[in-house]
Design a protein around this nucleic acid. Structure first.
Length: 287
DNA sequence: GTTTAATAATGCACTCAGCG
DNA sequence: CGCTGAGTGCATTATTAAAC
């Protein structure tokens, strides 16, 4: 005898049979064959270790065990129906656009490869992408986060750890930098705007502090680094198009986690919850 | 990540029993 | 004896777990 918890379907089958007083009518109501109903019932009775329905060739009556179970199940399934109907209505509201502010690099080298998966999961949600800074620090946080507060965008994805009362920040992952060096040994670093350099970097890698080269983005930094034989810090989650530039690679912890900022007011909004949870899932997968 | 194996659920076609 | 509804054997399909 299999003594495991009965399936929801088997309980639903019994509940329907108890209401319709017939396997055939229950089958019609549930859109399956009578054979399936019969088997679901016998499996359920086997699992419960008790007969629920008195039957020879007709459903005659419920057994005491059945009488005890049926009204409770009816009540619970009614409640379940209300909950599901409600969820379906919420699901319709899910149909919406989300405006995502994100840098070219994070988009192309981290997010884009997985986007088809998201679109398959939530075809109702349309994502619009607009350009944002790759890194957020004290100097540009006001400018970038204001776009959320002014409702220009719904979510900002970038490296940084800025906090604002009216915004919710979720760290998606805390990646490491890959140190890309054009040539082995000591070399200057191309500094990418708003990148906070880890304190351990110079001690551990022998790279010298950046001088005048400040790039606006990782892509620009990559070009400068190649041309001028310099080193560059690139989030290791950028795979593999950017890191291919590397001759030698050392890993250093990033000070700024990859973060998603949203408005507090949108925290419980269905589409946003779906997108944010998916981003967090993707963050866990890539860190 | 893909293939293979095991298991559960289901449907079809049939049988069986009760009833008028 | 024919109709109706419940039960069963067998084949197919879907799902999950295991192996590679």
């Amino acid at each position: 005898m299999t003594a495991k918890f009965p399936s929801l379907n088997a309980l639903r089958v019994f509940e329907t049979v108890s209401r319709t007083k017939s396997l055939k009518r229950a089958a019609a109501q549930l859109g399956v064959t009578q054979s399936a109903i019969s088997r679901q019932l016998s499996t359920l009775e086997q699992q419960l270790g008790a007969k629920l329905i008195q039957r020879d060739n007709k459903v005659h009556a419920l057994t005491p065990a059945g009488e005890a179970l049926a009204p409770e199940l009816t009540r619970i399934f009614r409640q379940l129906e209300r909950i599901v109907t409600h969820a379906m209505r919420e699901g319709e509201q899910l149909q919406r656009q989300i405006n995502v502010a994100i840098s070219h690099e994070v988009y192309q080298f981290w997010l884009m490869p997985a986007l088809p998966e998201f679109q398959q999961l939530y075809p109702q949600i349309e994502l619009n992408f607009v350009q944002a800074a790759e890194y957020i620090d004290r100097q540009n946080e006001e400018l970038e986060l204001q776009r959320l507060l002014r409702n220009e965008v719904d979510i900002l994805v970038a490296f940084g750890n800025a906090q604002l009362k009216t915004l919710v920040a979720s760290a998606l992952c805390r990646p490491k930098y890959a140190l890309l060096q054009a040539s082995v040994g000591e070399s200057d670093l191309v500094h990418i705007a708003h990148q906070i350099l880890p304190t351990s970097l110079f001690r551990e890698t022998g790279v010298t502090a950046p001088k005048q080269n400040v790039a606006r983005s990782t892509l620009m930094g990559g070009m400068i680094a190649q041309q001028q034989n310099q080193a560059l810090l690139v989030p290791a989650i950028y795979q593999p198009q950017v890191t291919r530039l590397a001759h030698e690679k050392a890993q250093v912890d990033m000070e700024q986690p990859l973060t998603a900022w949203i408005r507090k007011a949108d925290e419980r909004e269905f589409g946003m919850v779906a997108f944010l949870q998916w981003l967090e899932h993707r963050g866990r997968k890539t860190s």
